[in-house]
Every structure is written in C-alpha cells, then in structure tokens.
Design a protein around this nucleic acid. Structure first.
Lengths: 338, 338
DNA sequence: TAAAGTTGCACAAACGTTTGTGCAAAATTG
DNA sequence: CAATTTTGCACAAACGTTTGTGCAACTTTA
C-alpha cells in the first residue's frame, strides 16, 4: 500500500517524529544530527514517499485547495478565466476544485457545501443570482472568498467585476451614433449582477440620447445559446423589427447568429450586432463582430491575487471591489444608417 | 469553529459512536432507539453540522474526488469535455479537481503527484505525450484511470479516443475529391497519440490516391494558435503554396485564419481549409468551416462511465479502449477545383 | 563533585471521523 | 431463581500527519 512516515521511520531507525521534522526542514530547530537527516531523506527517496494531504489537512486545517464555482465551464468566457485562475493558483501551490452550477441556485448551495466539507482554503465564486445567505456563511466562517464577474449588491466581500454598465452604455451608444433607433437587447439571466448592470447601461444610453426604451425590444432571460436563438427569431418577426441587437453573452450571440442566418438576414446589411464579450473567432466571422471585450486574463489574475492576499491576511483586511474596464472593439457588424 | 460529531454528542447526550451511526443510517443495525435517533438528528440540524471529508477520507481512504488532467482548459474542445465530465461526476457524487498541464510533461507529472497526495479516488487524463511511467504508477497503485482523447500505445489502460486516423483520412480524401493535390497539414504536438493518428490518416489518404507526400507541406509542432499562424504564413509564402490546408485543432485553425486574412487570401477561393474539430461559431465564419467534428459530449460521458465502472470493480475488470467516430461536416471552406 | 546546561532524540496527544468489540442492565426461558 | 438472551448503547483503536513537551546521556561549570 502507500508509504507512510512509519515506513520511513522503520527503514531509517528513528521515530516518526524525527522523520516528520526532517522532511519539514526542521532538523536544525530540533537538533537532529546530519547523519540522521541524511538517512531519513534517503529512505524517503528510496520508498518514493508522498505525504498524505488528508492527514496533513486534518491536523493543520489547511488543504492547499481552492474551490472555483462557475456557471458553465464550456462557455469560452468562463473557460478562459478558469484557465488563468488554475495557472496562477498552481504557481502558488494550490489545487483547484471546480464546480459547475449551470446557473442553478440549489446546485450552487450544494456545491459550496461540498467544498466546505472538503476543507478548501478559499473560494472564488461567480454567483448565480443575488441570494447571498450561503455566501455570507463562508465569510462568517472566516474563509477567504472572492466574487468574480458577478458580485452581490449589499455583501461586504472581495469582488472582481467588469464595468458592465459602462460596456453596455458604450455598445448601445455606438449603435445610436451609427443611426440606429430601434435597438434590441437580448438579456442574460435576470437579476444577476452582470445582467442588471448591462440592462441599465443599455437603457441609460438610449435615454441619454432621447430614445425611448421599448419593452418589446427588451427580451431574453438566460445566457444560453437557445435563449439567443429564440428571442432573435421573435425579434426579427416583429411588425417593426429592430435594426440592431445588443447580445449580452457569447452563447446568446451564437444563438442570435443562427437565427439571423435562418431568417436569411445578413449582418450588418439587414441587422447590426454588438456583442458582449469577444470570442477568438469574432474577427473571422462572416461579419467580424463589433464587441465589448472583457479583460478575462486580468479578471482571473486579480481574483487569484485578492484571494491569496485574503488567505495571508486571515480576514483582517478590508474587502476590495476591483472594477475592470471593458473595451469596445469596433469591427464590421454595425451598419451606418445615417 | 466548525461543528464536529463531538458537539452533537454533547448536545444530544450520547456518544460520538452513536452520533456517527445515526448520521450514517446505521441506527437499526446497532439497535439505537428511535428517541435517540431523533435527538441526534435534531442536534445535527440545529448545529448545522457538515461532515469533515478530510477526517472521513483519512479513515475510509476515499475522498469522493476525481482528478481531471487537461492540457488547456481555455481550448473550447477541452472546455466542453470538462463541462460534461463535471456534470456527470457531480451527479454520481464526486467533485472534480482540475489540473492544467499546458502540454508540459513535467507539469503533468507534478500535477498527478499532487492528485495522489490529495487522495483522489480516480483519474481522467489527457496525456501530454507517450511517456507513461507516471501513468503506469497510477495503475500499479490500483487506482482507476481513464485516458481520454489521447491514449498511450502500449499501455494497458482504459481509454476513450476518437478515430483520429479515420477523421484525418476523410478530411484529406474530401480535399482530394475536390481536386486538390497540393494539400498541407498543420500538425499539433508531435508524438501525441492524436497527432500521430491524424498525420498517418493524412498521409495514407494521399498515398491511396496516388499523391506524393511533400515534406514542405507537413508543418507545425503544437496545438497553439501561434503555431497555426506562423506555419500558415510560411505555407502561403512558398514558391508553390498549397491549395488546401488541413488544420488539426481549433486553435491551429484560428491561427491559420488570422494568417490567411493578413495575407489577403480568401477561403475557399484562394485557399481551402478542413479543420479538426468543430467550434460553435464554425457555421458563421466568413467561410463556414468544413470540419471533422468530434463527439465531445459522448467522449466525456463515456470517460466518466468507464471510470465509475472501474471504481466499482476495484481493478478486476479488463481494460477497455472505446473508439468513437468523428464526423465530416461539409460546409463551405473547400473549393472544388476540378 | 554536584549542579546546571546541552545534545539528540522520542512519547503521546491532537485533528474528526468510522467501526470492531464489548459491557451493564433488563428481559426471557427452563 | 439461575442461566441465557436481548437491548441499547460506549470504549478504544485506527487512519497519517504534526508538534508540545520531556527524557537519558553527556558535557561544562563553579
């Protein structure tokens, strides 16, 4: 079976205590002789010893594991962020347990419970909605937590978000400045931090340019491709269809494009699009997409830095909310109809 | 701090043993009275008890955690598979520790070592290359292992792969049947199972149609976008550039497209493309891509099923190699030049 | 020469769960 | 009424690591 400190102790003729102290570089502190140290290290190497992190974690109450909770890992946006987070956590000596919520609050609660049971040292969470009881429990138990991409309005927690409002405002403003007046928005999951901000940015941009918000152009209710597809089909078949659509996620954009193709419309001649976020292939689409690009790599890196800071500070630091700026990338999916 | 069995024992006036047996539904087996059971359950609920999986894992030598080792989680292909695996593992009561190797064998070895230390119950691994010592150690320690997408030639392990050879053969044959003779391939990481098979499929398809393989058309050496970009730039600037390119991963395809655009070429007029694998946006690209589509969802599902089967069989079952068929999806990125 | 200090280690408890085994009291049986 | 059985639990060890504390032998000092 697996090699333990006992095996090394037997092989090198000392106690488990001595072995543990040698392997943990405490031989000087406990005045263990150089010969004993040498023997222990050789035995450990010969036996190919690997520490049991369960035992160590139980004793030290630390697992060097972090829980990451994401809505949908197959979404390119979350996949990119996850990649960045895994890389930085790994460089800092942490493993990543990944939990997918599929935008379901019950699943989120259960997954977080699981993470707690497994004794993770900290959490990075992209919350499903605005319910915060289960997230507050994490803070109450003095565990480090960073909210990412979506934060909770009245929760005092570290958070890394993008200025969704500004991004949506710019996207909508760009359409207005190109002459569009009938501008639709296909929303993501309602009542999420990101969606609320994007919706408000869209509305305020219209209002500030003297354009009324028409309820029939405010559609959608989740971040899936199917939502984008259905709602775009319905938009295109209105008596007065929009001349432009603001799509608020990668998958919504994908669905919208499918609907547009099926309705034999072309981008941007028949319908203009601005999308939130960028995807790798966006420049090479039949209509290279004008997008609001989010700094995914930075989001992941800042989240990791905040979490590690919190782990080291042991809860003594003030919470931080880092707001990163998205960037409007103008390609060729908006037609000028002035 | 955290609530333990001791706290429940104190609150309900029985021993830790009794509490453990009640919570594990063994009250009948050990003839614990209904009143005692009720008291224990109430105390556990009042105190919001959650089991400590470290302690349980140490004692039972089971953690209900599985390690997934992937080369690059931001690659849509791996992201999709990961999503599927996480969903199915979660439904079966397992958490997923995710490790990214960045196609680096040292990182792979270290990550697998880490997973072992953390006592994962099984592994799903997409190996970097053909080195198998560290993978064989997993099998030697009687831990369940499934190789995914890439297997190791002479290793007796469960594996789920796609018939890369058949996919590449079909892709190349499609180009030949459309009149192409100068067909290039941009390879992924050399000496990986997938790349070897794809290269062989490409070569045999050419040979079987009486077309010589030209070394100058066999380029590339990893799955990154940059590799696709550079090699395509070089291909397009040959004295006798290819009329078609077979790109062997999503990111290689992305890089190739960037190079093609920069060289002011159009698909398929100036250069035809067949890509391995499909991406969501492929139908809506400036040239909707003809692709070899891999059954990602099925790959993930079968891998999980194999792993769980192996966990339940405790190593007594014969190893299986499941080969799934890819599908040639013909869109509009291949020009007929007959 | 005795007291004090140093050296090089080991003992045993702790972390929180599970479980093999066993005990005292009560009930049943012959 | 004594022997046996049943009832309803508890004791203590185990898993593998870490560490507070302490011990026996040796050396130094006054």
């Amino acid at each position: 079976m697996l090699v333990t400190l006992n095996d090394i102790a037997e092989k090198s003729g000392v106690s488990v205590t001595t072995v543990s102290r040698v392997l943990n570089n405490k031989h000087e502190k406990y005045r263990i002789s150089l010969e004993t140290k040498k023997n222990v290290l050789k035995a450990a190497k010969d036996l190919n010893y690997r520490p049991n992190e369960l035992a160590r974690g139980l004793r030290l109450k630390k697992t060097h594991t972090v829980g990451l909770v994401v809505p949908d890992i197959s979404n390119p946006f979350f996949a990119h962020i996850t990649h960045t987070i895994q890389s930085y956590m790994y460089q800092s000596g942490y493993s990543l347990i990944i939990c997918v919520t599929n935008e379901n609050i019950e699943t989120e609660i259960r997954q977080i419970d699981l993470l707690r049971s497994k004794g993770v040292d900290g959490y990075i969470i992209m919350p499903v909605g605005q319910e915060s009881g289960h997230l507050q429990e994490i803070l109450n138990s003095n565990k480090p937590l960073v909210l990412l991409d979506r934060c909770i309005e009245d929760m005092n927690a570290n958070a890394v978000v993008v200025d969704n409002y500004a991004g949506a405002y710019k996207a909508t403003e760009h359409l207005v400045q190109n002459g569009h007046r009938r501008i639709a928005i296909v929303q993501g999951l309602l009542n999420t931090y990101t969606n609320n901000a994007r919706l408000n940015g869209y509305k305020d941009a219209l209002k500030d340019h003297g354009i009324a918000v028409h309820e029939r152009y405010v559609v959608g209710n989740d971040f899936r491709k199917e939502n984008g597809y259905i709602e775009t089909k319905l938009l295109l078949n209105l008596g007065d269809p929009p001349t432009a659509i603001f799509t608020t996620s990668d998958l919504i954009t994908l669905g919208a494009m499918q609907a547009i193709f099926e309705e034999k419309c072309t981008i941007p001649e028949d319908i203009s699009i601005v999308a939130f976020d960028d995807v790798d292939f966006a420049p090479y689409l039949v209509a290279p997409l004008t997008v609001v690009r989010q700094p995914k790599e930075l989001m992941g890196e800042v989240a990791v830095k905040l979490l590690i800071e919190e782990m080291r500070a042991k809860g003594k630091k003030d919470k931080k909310r880092i707001v990163l700026m998205p960037e409007l990338v103008i390609r060729k999916s908006v037609r000028n109809i002035l």
